[in-house]
C-alpha cells in the first residue's frame, strides 16, 4: 500500500504539487488525468523519488521513503517505471536491456535472468527481437520492451508516465494491451495518461488533477459520467467529444 500525505513539490518558487493526499491499495489501478502542467507526472515521479518532494511523506508498506535514511535504490527496485520516451539503453540489445538490472542489482544468475527475460519477451509478444538493438524497433515495440525491462525487477508496483504519448496512433493499442494484461494479473499500477477510453476501461479509480492539486477522485463510471467539480467538467468537456 502506498500512502501519500500532505505532499508538496516546488521547483524554485514555482509550486507544482500542493497538499497531495492519496492512498493506493495493493492490486489497484489508479489512473491520473488532468491538463498539462497539472502536476500529474511530477506526482508520479515523486513516488519513486525521481523528484524529491519539498514537503510531506510517501509511505510504502509502512516505510516513509522520504526519510533520508531510506536506501532509495532498494525502494526503486520495487517500483517499476515506464517513461513516455521509452528510455531503452541504445548500446544494449533487447535481452541485455531487460537482464542488466536483474543481474547487476538483484544479483540474479545470468541464465535465470535470461530465462525470465525470454518469458517477459513472450508476454509482450517480442520474443524474436531478443538480439536486436532498440534503434531497429518501432516506438510501440520499444515501449513494450521498456515494460518488460521494468517487470524484470519483479516490482510490487508499476508507474506509467504517459506511456503512449510519444507513439504513432497505430501503435498505441499494442502497448495498452500489455498494460491491460498486467491489470488483469492484479499488478498495482499508477498510470498517467491522456487516453480516456483506456482510463475508463483499466482504472479502478481515476484521479483528476489540476493546478498541482487533486481536484476529484472517483471510480471511472462516476468521474466520467458525473464529475462533481467545475474544473473536472470543464476538462472532460474539452477532451470527450
Amino acid at each position: 500500500m502506498i500512502t501519500v500525505k500532505h505532499l508538496y513539490k516546488s521547483f524554485n518558487s514555482h509550486e507544482v504539487l500542493s497538499d497531495i493526499n492519496c492512498t493506493i491499495h495493493d492490486g489497484e489501478v489508479i489512473v491520473i488525468i488532468g491538463p498539462s502542467g497539472s502536476g500529474k507526472s511530477t506526482l508520479l515521479r515523486c513516488l519513486n523519488l525521481l523528484e524529491t518532494p519539498t514537503q510531506g511523506s510517501i509511505i510504502i508498506d509502512g516505510q516513509d521513503i522520504t526519510d533520508r535514511k531510506v536506501n532509495i535504490d532498494q525502494v526503486r527496485e520495487k517500483m517499476g517505471m515506464v517513461f513516455q520516451q521509452f528510455n531503452l539503453f541504445p548500446h544494449k540489445t533487447v535481452i541485455k536491456n531487460i537482464c542488466h538490472a536483474p543481474i547487476r542489482v538483484r544479483k540474479m544468475k545470468r541464465g535465470d535472468a535470461e530465462q525470465q527475460g525470454m518469458d517477459l519477451l513472450s508476454k509482450v509478444g517480442l520474443r524474436e527481437k531478443k538480439d536486436v538493438y532498440p534503434i531497429t524497433l518501432s516506438g510501440g515495440q520499444q515501449q513494450r520492451i521498456a515494460i518488460a525491462r521494468a517487470l524484470a525487477m519483479q516490482p510490487t508496483a508499476m508507474l506509467f508516465d504517459e506511456p503512449t504519448s510519444a507513439l504513432d496512433p497505430e501503435m498505441v493499442s499494442e502497448v495498452l494491451a500489455v498494460i491491460k494484461d498486467l491489470a488483469k494479473e492484479g499488478m498495482t499500477m499508477v498510470i498517467v495518461t491522456h487516453e480516456m477510453g483506456f482510463a475508463k476501461e483499466v482504472g479502478d479509480r481515476i484521479i483528476f488533477m489540476d493546478g498541482g492539486q487533486i481536484v476529484e477522485e472517483n471510480t471511472p463510471q462516476e468521474l466520467f459520467r458525473h464529475p462533481q467539480h467545475a474544473r473536472t467538467q470543464n476538462f472532460l468537456s474539452k477532451i470527450l467529444h
Partner: peptide, 8 residues
C-alpha cells in the same frame, strides 16, 4: 532516470 528507476 531509466537506470536509477531500475534500482541501479
Amino acid at each position: 532516470e531509466a537506470a536509477r528507476s531500475l534500482g541501479m
